[in-house]
Simulated assay, not measured.
Amino acid sequence: MYRNTKGFSLPETLVAFSCVLMICGLFFPFLIHYASRLQQLQREVEALKFLREGVEEAIVTHEFVDHSRTYKGVRYELVWKSEGSGEACVEYDKNTGDFKEVCVKADG
């Protein structure tokens, strides 16, 4: 019958390797998109945290002062749109050159 039954032949190895490459080729773009979306959401969460801290400070001190900070290489700037209007925004760079803004406005 068959004399060599101790291992895989070259065609079997090539087929298995090509299957692994096809699976990786399908999943890597998804994983790269998922990782970039996760970074965007992390930046937005940090902006919302900074906005909350700034609004809480303004409520306690009654001072509407602009602040800025850098966290993990991203610069966040808290800006009060007009003195005492109750509208505050945090602007941050999305690392694509354009800025994103998260705002909150007091009703009443």
Rank of each mutant, 00 (worst) to 15 (best):
E83A: 01
R43Q: 11
S82K: 11
V74A: 00
M1H: 07
A106H: 15
E56R: 15
F30W: 08
K105P: 02
F64W: 15
K100L: 14
W80C: 00
F27E: 07
E46M: 08
Q42V: 03
S36C: 07
L26F: 14
E46Y: 06
A16D: 12
C24Y: 06
I32N: 06
G97V: 08
R69N: 05
S85E: 14
S82P: 06
A106G: 05
E87M: 12
L14A: 06
I23C: 07
F30G: 11
K72Y: 02
S9A: 07
R75F: 06
C103L: 12
T61Q: 08
Y34P: 00
Y34R: 10
E87V: 15
G84N: 08
A47T: 11
R3G: 13
H67N: 07
G54C: 01
E87N: 09
F64K: 11
Y92H: 10
E91G: 02
A106V: 13
G86P: 10
S36M: 00
R37Y: 10
P29F: 03
E77A: 15
M22R: 03
M22P: 01
F99V: 13
G73E: 06
E57N: 01
L48I: 03
S85M: 10
K105N: 09
E101N: 14
L14Y: 01
F8L: 13
C19V: 12
K81W: 00
H62C: 08
E57I: 07
E12T: 03
T96W: 10
V20E: 00
S18H: 04
F50S: 06
I59Q: 13
I59V: 11
F28N: 11
L51A: 05
T70I: 09
V74N: 08
E57C: 11
I23S: 09
L14D: 04
R43D: 07
Y2E: 15
D107Q: 14
A47C: 09
Y71K: 14
G54L: 06
E77K: 13
V90C: 03
K72P: 00
V102M: 09
K6R: 15
T70Y: 01
I23F: 09
